[in-house]
Simulated scan of single mutants.
Amino acid sequence: MERYEPVFRDNAIDADVLRNLTADDLKELGIASVGHRRKLLAALTELRAHTEEPRHGAASPGDAKGERRQVAVLFADLCGFTQMSREVDAEEVLAVLDRYFD
């Protein structure tokens, strides 16, 4: 099936378009073998089943998977850091940051 990759690439068929291909599309792309078309259509059906996006509003808030946590966020603006990072080697910048985080 790898031989069809150039056909898909030449026809600007990306992942979004690929999911929506039909048997007629495959014929138009020049995939003449019925067996290959059937295999590709079966693979596309499986791809659609695994990439369907969840419907909005289908799940209740109680069905959400995850957890609520309390976190703290620190934003630090190192005075002169941007200018310094332009003027010195990356290793020196890393050394300054290591000292800062220590």
Rank of each mutant, 00 (worst) to 15 (best):
M1N: 14
M1V: 15
M1C: 10
E2D: 14
R3Q: 15
R3M: 14
Y4P: 10
Y4N: 15
E5T: 12
E5N: 15
P6H: 01
P6K: 07
V7R: 09
F8N: 00
F8S: 02
F8G: 02
D10V: 13
N11R: 10
I13L: 06
I13R: 09
D14Y: 10
A15W: 12
A15V: 15
D16T: 14
D16R: 14
R19Q: 15
T22F: 06
D24K: 02
D25V: 13
K27H: 07
K27I: 14
E28H: 15
E28P: 02
L29W: 04
G30I: 11
G30H: 12
G30Q: 04
I31E: 01
I31K: 06
I31S: 03
I31T: 03
A32D: 01
A32E: 05
V34R: 03
G35A: 11
G35K: 11
H36Q: 04
H36P: 03
H36E: 11
R37L: 04
R37H: 08
R38I: 12
L41Y: 04
L41G: 02
A42I: 05
A42C: 05
A43D: 07
L44H: 06
E46G: 06
L47Y: 12
L47S: 08
H50T: 08
H50G: 14
T51G: 01
E52F: 14
E53G: 12
E53L: 15
P54H: 09
P54D: 02
P54Q: 12
R55K: 10
R55V: 14
H56I: 13
G57T: 03
G57H: 03
G57P: 09
A58I: 07
S60L: 15
S60G: 13
P61R: 03
P61E: 08
G62L: 11
D63Y: 05
D63T: 05
A64Y: 15
K65V: 09
G66W: 03
E67K: 06
E67F: 06
E67A: 05
R68I: 10
R68G: 05
R69E: 04
R69W: 03
Q70F: 10
Q70M: 07
Q70H: 11
A72E: 04
A72F: 07
V73I: 12
V73P: 04
V73M: 07
F75I: 03
F75D: 02
A76R: 02
L78F: 04
L78K: 00
L78V: 09
L78S: 05
C79F: 08
F81D: 00
F81Q: 00
T82R: 05
Q83M: 01
Q83P: 01
S85L: 01
R86H: 13
E87K: 15
E87I: 11
V88Q: 08
V88T: 06
E91P: 05
E92I: 08
L94G: 04
L94K: 02
A95C: 06
V96F: 00
L97R: 00
L97F: 07
L97K: 01
D98F: 00
D98I: 01
Y100H: 00
D102G: 15
